[in-house]
Simulated scan of single mutants.
Amino acid sequence: MITMSRARFAALVEDALDAIPAEFASRLGNVVIQIEEENPDEPETLGLYVGVALTERLSDYSFATPDTITIYRRPILQLCATEEEVADEVAITVVHEIGHFFGIDDDRLHDLGWA
């Protein structure tokens, strides 16, 4: 497990978000990205999307609370040995969870290399 400050980890999450192409990033207006230490129910989980995917929204979808993407710091740090590995895993996790927002399932994300 690598040791990393919360601020540095947050900067890596920001870097991953900055790397998202503008045409996709512009659609994330009602999505909250947050960092937590770990998921209390599933401590090995690296990230979690909670919300209604764009592909599942009906015409009456409005005035909804923001969807959330949570990136879990501790399991990512436990998985990695270097800062470069953390940066890569954060990027993969961010893209993976954003993929769920766009309606892409785990199998397809795996096929695309984002799992």
Score class of each variant (00 low, 15 high):
residue 114 W to I: 09
residue 47 G to T: 03
residue 2 I to N: 00
residue 89 E to T: 09
residue 37 E to C: 03
residue 43 P to N: 06
residue 46 L to E: 00
residue 114 W to L: 02
residue 68 T to S: 14
residue 82 T to L: 04
residue 57 R to L: 11
residue 44 E to K: 04
residue 99 G to W: 02
residue 99 G to L: 08
residue 58 L to I: 08
residue 72 Y to A: 01
residue 48 L to H: 02
residue 62 S to V: 15
residue 104 I to A: 02
residue 78 Q to C: 06
residue 114 W to H: 01
residue 5 S to T: 15
residue 57 R to I: 08
residue 89 E to K: 07
residue 75 P to A: 06
residue 23 E to T: 14
residue 8 R to M: 13
residue 112 L to S: 04
residue 101 F to V: 01
residue 79 L to G: 00
residue 5 S to C: 12
residue 76 I to V: 08
residue 109 L to Q: 04
residue 100 H to G: 06
residue 16 A to P: 05
residue 26 S to V: 09
residue 39 N to D: 11
residue 63 F to C: 06
residue 88 D to Q: 11
residue 61 Y to T: 09
residue 1 M to K: 15
residue 63 F to K: 14
residue 59 S to N: 12
residue 63 F to L: 14
residue 59 S to R: 15
residue 46 L to T: 00
residue 76 I to N: 03
residue 95 V to S: 07
residue 62 S to N: 13
residue 109 L to I: 05
residue 102 F to Y: 09
residue 86 V to S: 02
residue 24 F to W: 15
residue 115 A to Q: 04
residue 44 E to P: 03
residue 68 T to Y: 14
residue 52 V to T: 09
residue 98 I to M: 08
residue 54 L to R: 10
residue 62 S to Q: 11
residue 108 R to F: 10
residue 114 W to P: 00
residue 35 I to T: 11
residue 71 I to H: 01
residue 110 H to A: 02
